[in-house]
């Protein structure tokens, strides 16, 4: 089932066309990895999905982006609803300077959940889903700032999934982490796929191969090739993709 669809999407930063006529579809409960050299438009494209580019002055979007068939760039589309539906995890983990519990409870409260018991249950289930519960259950009311980078990132993912989005966008979520923490995040992505549709931007091609079902190769704003990940990394359709993934250019 189609969860996200982009139709001839263009993004301009002033006069610069950063994303060019991107048309693609993302199936529900799959992981799509976006790869390509710096400046290829993959992060810009990712940020279109929850309209994060709206806050960048001089940005102009052309074309269509649909989630569940609904065009999210229509004026009547509520951006707050969109961002509730589409969670995001960034390269640098950004926990709030609050307790572990509050990091997750905050989003729930501003989304209208007042019942203390329900909040507690959701905090627990989110921490369990991100394999953090056993590590933090005895210090839920301590600050999250003392966490390791990997724990902070998993806390941010827990915070994202607590409000039960349908799509999770990840912009290089493990690029600042050590190999063990990276592995935990990658295993988490495999688990989360059962409940969410995930798009991940990564500079690490091996990571794209490990975590995704589909891979899209971007170059200079163009979508060069989108294929099953296994296909991209064994026999891509285009020579340009082959050259990039074998390190011959880019």
């Amino acid at each position: 089932m189609k969860k996200i669809e982009s139709k001839a999407l263009n993004v301009y930063y002033g006069d610069t066309r950063a994303v060019k006529d991107i048309s693609l579809q993302v199936e529900k409960n799959t992981v799509l990895a976006l790869i390509g050299p710096s400046g290829c438009g993959k992060s810009t494209f990712l940020r279109c999905i929850n309209r994060m580019n709206d806050i960048i002055p001089g940005t102009r979007i052309e074309g269509e982006l649909l989630i569940d068939g609904e065009p999210v760039y229509q004026n009547k589309y509520d951006v707050t609803t969109l961002r509730r539906k589409v969670g995001m995890v960034f390269q640098k983990s950004n926990p709030f300077p609050k307790t572990i519990f509050e990091n997750i409870a905050y989003g729930l409260r501003i989304n209208g959940i007042k019942d203390k018991y329900e909040i507690e249950k959701k905090v627990e289930s989110s921490l369990k889903a991100t394999a953090l519960w056993d590590e933090v259950k005895d210090r839920l009311h301590q600050s999250a700032i003392g966490f390791s980078g990997g724990q902070q990132q998993r806390l941010c993912i827990a915070r994202t999934i607590a409000i039960q989005p349908e799509i999770i966008l990840m912009d290089e979520p493990a690029s600042a982490l050590d190999p063990i923490s990276t592995q935990k995040i990658e295993e988490l992505i495999h688990e989360l796929k059962n409940d969410y549709t995930i798009i991940i931007v990564t500079h690490n091609m091996q990571q794209a191969a490990r975590v995704s079902d589909y891979t899209a190769f971007f170059y200079m704003g163009d979508l060069v090739e989108l294929n099953k990940t296994e296909k991209i990394f064994t026999k891509p359709d285009l020579e340009m993709t082959e050259k990039y993934i074998t390190g011959k250019f880019g």
């Binding site: 091996q206 191969a209 490990r210 990940t229 296994e230 990394f233 064994t234």
Partner: peptide, 9 residues
């Protein structure tokens, strides 16, 4: 085997 070699390294 090929898929595992390629995707899981």
């Amino acid at each position: 085997c090929v898929r595992t070699l390629v995707t899981q390294q």
